[in-house]
Each structure stands twice: as structure tokens, then as C-alpha cells.
Design a protein around this nucleic acid. Sequence first.
DNA 1: TCGTATTGATTACAGGTGTAATCGGAAGGA
DNA 2: TCCTTCCGATTACACCTGTAATCAATACGA
Lengths: 121, 121
Amino acid sequence: MRISDAEFEVMEVLWSSPRPLTATEVAKRVEGERGWSLATVKTMLSRLAAKGAIQYREEGRRYLYSAAIARESYVGRESRRFVDQLFGGRLSPLVARLAEEDALDDEDVAAIEAILKDLKS
Amino acid sequence: MRISDAEFEVMEVLWSSPRPLTATEVAKRVEGERGWSLATVKTMLSRLAAKGAIQYREEGRRYLYSAAIARESYVGRESRRFVDQLFGGRLSPLVARLAEEDALDDEDVAAIEAILKDLKS
DNA sequence: TCGTATTGATTACAGGTGTAATCGGAAGGA
DNA sequence: TCCTTCCGATTACACCTGTAATCAATACGA
């Protein structure tokens, strides 16, 4: 199950909310980024529900939406797909590419080294 | 300029060939993976040419296709887009995610460490 | 009670994608 | 010269995406 770019922004809102949200609430929180109308957000919610990425509970006449899949698992799947497609499953060429583009700051480099050191224990 | 998944496979064939290829040659080399018909490959080539991702030179009645963009630059752009969207521009969370999924073998880890060490000099 | 606002559902519509079939013209063999 | 074949170009068509508008039903305020 793939989630499109626009749908992903809606997922981010739901993932970052500690409680289920109505369509109107989701729209308010996405508004900052995109100039979406409420109708557009409702379309996204319908499509995500149809895909099984979110679920809802009826509260009176409204729905309260929440994510049905964990961000970690979705992001994990997509990450793997990405490194498989572009780098033959190896992460190092990706690191090399981003390093060459100066997309890594010292803090990020230190964090990566810490993760790897931890891995080897 | 985005390249779709199917188009990307055609690009890989052109990127990996030392010389320009005809549509039929491309089709033969993609065949292993997908069960595409020659017509499908021709569609991909037309679309990629329209996007400016490949170019061609006429050789008699045929075209000889070659990539018009470097793999490194395209892959670099997509990588950045990917880490921006899923990890807020930091690479370390991606490393953490893949590490948790055991998607990193020793060789890959060593390669990454070498790249980072090199970076700091 | 009656209109208005609100909500999910349905419909819209252009552009991209996957996967071809068909067409028109040219090259090449009979 | 004529027929077949091979090429790129054009057309096809269903599904996905981005971005809504509209509809039918309901709740709520006057």
C-alpha cells in the first residue's frame, strides 16, 4: 500500500496528534503548509481510509480519524524500497551521495556514528 | 522532473550501457526483470525523451537512445527529497530505522564508517 | 418550525502511470 | 515495382493523484 505525497502530509498530522481528529481539525493543521480546501482534505481522508492507512470512529455526525498504521513501519518499508531501488539495497552509497552534496552536518554525522557503534556491540 | 518506477528501469539500462541503444536493444535488456512488450518500452522511451531525461540521435530509420542526465545527479536529488520528506532532512533517523530492521550488514557498516571518517578530515 | 450550516459521500476533471495496440511511412527483399 | 516488415508516432484505456465542487442528510439556531 503506497501513500502519495499529498496523502502523506495528512498522515503526518494524524501521526503527530495524540488523539483522533475530525476532518476540520486535520484541515486546520495542514493548512499551514499547503493551501488546501476542506474538500481536498476530506478527499484525502476518504482515500486513506479506503487504503486502510487510517481508521475512524463515528462521533455523532462526524468521524474521528486516526492512523491505522504506525509511522515507523510505513517509513521503514519505504526506506527499504528506496535503498533497494536506487542503491541496490546498500545504504553506504546513499551516505556517500549525501556527503558529496554537503547534506550532512556534524551533528548528523555524530548521530550516525553513535548508531553504528551501538550496532556492533 | 520526476521519473516513474517503470521509467527508472529503462534509465538503468541506458545508464549501464557504454553506448547508445536502439529501442529493441533496450527492450531486450529490460526483459529479464519485467515482462514488457516492445511497445511498452517504446512508450517509456518517448515519455523519457519528452521529459528530457534521455536524448537520441537518428541512425538511419532508427533512434539511438542515451541518458541525458547523470545517474548521480538524479539519484542525489531524489535522495535529498526522500530524507527531507520522511526524516526532516536528517540522515541519522534513516540509518537508525534500517539498523533496527537488520538491513545493514557488516560490510555496509564499515563502508559508511569509512565515508564519515573521510568526511571529517 | 424553518432555514442555514456542517458533514461525509459522490462526482469532476486534468495530468501522470502502466501497459499496450495500431497507424503511416520507409527500407529491403522478391 | 510490390509486398512485407520494422520503426517511431499516435491513440487507447484503466487506475492513481491533486484539487476541488456538489449533494443529501442532519443538527442547530432563530
